[in-house]
Design a protein around this nucleic acid. Sequence first.
DNA 1: AATTGAATCAACCGCGTGAGA
DNA 2: ATCTCACGCGGTTGATTCAAT
Length: 269
Amino acid sequence: MEDYERNSNSPTHEEDSDVRKGPWTEDEDAILVNFVSIHGDARWNHIARSSGLKRTGKSCRLRWLNYLRPDVRRGNITLEEQFMILKLHSLWGNRWSKIAQYLPGRTDNEIKNYWRTRVQKQAKHLRCDVNSNLFKETMRNVWMPRLVERINAQSSPTTCNPVESMVTTDPGQPIREPIPLEPGFVQFNQQFVPASELSATSSNSPAETLSDVQGGVVNGSGSDPAGQTGFGEFNDWGCVGGDNIWTDEESFWFLQDQFCPETTSYSYN
DNA sequence: AATTGAATCAACCGCGTGAGA
DNA sequence: ATCTCACGCGGTTGATTCAAT
């Protein structure tokens, strides 16, 4: 028992067979919730031992944080959340837990999964690396403005302000606890976004601020080879429903044309 | 209806870090 | 100053679900 208590991260052989792995049962969940309500969400090895769960402290912690915690949010990632993820990832890279701090109720695991499944899929679609300049430019100049458009479009004037008016230069007023507020951040749709990023410009693209893309054409050229008004719905981007203007394939070729014209040979229908 | 491949997500693993002895 | 331990983070895996054929 002492050995087990000393190092739950490297169990001995006998302990190994005693440690449960895999999906949690409802009973286990109930036990864990009960113990956390008594002991608090710390000292995970202690909770694991004293609860009688044959789980490691690590496993208990993960289950609590990602699933059982009362304030955990489930369901689809909203457009605003997608925007935040893109924005914050462009600042901090794969700092999932840090990004998660700005998305109340979302876990680092969920955000990480979102990035890997949705965002990296788009990179694959574009046949480029997720860290490549092409992909970053696509994100900055097409997808993010497009998300802003969609966020504004879905905002009812009576219930929600357009994005432009949600951006404030006053970082001194925290909206939600326990979102940490860092100097230089601004509020965007009840979230805080680094102010410098909202007005950041790309070296080879037109100035691009949130207000620049208000309900408008993105990426300066605004060229829509199909003579239409938008860039499609990017269904793979988690945008379901709506009236698709472009197919994924058309979007792909458009983006390819924008950023890798030398490699593109195609014709639009 | 059955099969297969892709997508999704919960959970595990290894490593780094910080606190305390 | 060093060691041990617990915790947290990011990467990865594997089971399940979904969609296409």
